[in-house]
């Protein structure tokens, strides 16, 4: 495995009084698309919230480009180049579509992404840029959420269940945009419930079960059998 951009070692994470992750370890290599799968409550979202700094942890448990980030605040993590597309999109309702995108880029990190390029990726957003973000359809809102994360020109992009609650045709169009996003040396973590989708876009897959890693391997090589064991813990 090439040098990891993100390295998680023995992460215990809590969600309120409830411990959601137990000594979790995983690595993501620079430039790859990693998939994280697992049933509801397996700890996927807690993992995303931990890496992004929304949940503070032991500093050494999470390293980004070798630097310990487990104890940093979310805004400090974001400044280092990690962006999260949160589950449920969570756009800012009192901001217009364009303002949601602009605020995503407010740190001014240099990189390929800017408003015109995003509008080229999702042309519908250019048309609707002045409406309140929450007035869009679910799929369009998801485009804004992805765009908002891209505007920070992250080195690591994490997408938490971006297909949740969307129609299959919309999911398809969003995933079709994915190669155009991760092409330029961007590392991505995709959290999905849809196993087939997760395997098809990723090079490595990690399966969580009750807060622990139950399977990890190259996406092309894991068998369906192994996955269903890791997923459901039969």
């Amino acid at each position: 495995m090439p040098e990891p951009i993100l390295s998680i070692e023995g992460l215990d994470a809590h969600y309120g009084d409830f411990q959601a992750l137990y000594g979790l370890s995983m690595q993501v290599a620079r430039g790859e698309v990693a998939a994280v799968i697992g049933a509801n409550g397996a700890g996927k979202t807690t993992l995303m919230r931990s890496v992004s700094g929304l949940i503070r942890n032991q500093p050494q448990a999470i390293r980004f480009r070798g630097q310990p980030i487990g104890g940093l605040r979310a805004d400090q993590v974001a400044a280092l180049g990690i962006a999260l597309v949160p589950e449920g999109r969570l756009l800012f309702p009192s901001l217009s579509v364009e303002e949601n995108l602009i605020i995503g880029g407010q740190m001014g990190r240099p990189g390929p992404w800017n408003l015109p390029r995003l509008y080229d990726l999702f042309p519908i957003l250019r048309e609707r840029r002045h409406v309140p973000a929450t007035a869009l359809s679910g799929g369009q809102q998801q485009m804004v959420a992805i765009g908002r994360a891209l505007m920070s020109n992250p080195d690591l992009l994490m997408m938490d269940e971006i297909s949740l609650g969307l129609a299959p045709v919309v999911i398809k169009s969003i995933y079709e945009a994915l190669p155009g996003i991760v092409g330029e040396g961007l590392t991505a973590i995709v959290v999905e419930q849809d196993i087939a989708k997760a395997l098809s876009v990723s090079s490595r897959v990690t399966c969580l079960q009750e807060g622990r890693v139950s399977l990890s391997g190259a996406s092309a090589q894991v068998t369906r059998d192994a996955i269903s064991r890791a997923y459901f813990g039969v």
Binding site: L54, A74, D75, Q76, L90, F92, E99, I102
Partner: peptide, 24 residues
């Protein structure tokens, strides 16, 4: 203004605003 956007975003969703690099 950018400041106003930051105010509105923080008012809407404090934690997501942090993800945008805004220190609450």
């Amino acid at each position: 203004t950018a400041l106003g956007r930051a105010f509105r975003a923080t008012s809407d969703r404090q934690d997501i605003a942090q993800l945008m690099g805004l220190n609450r």
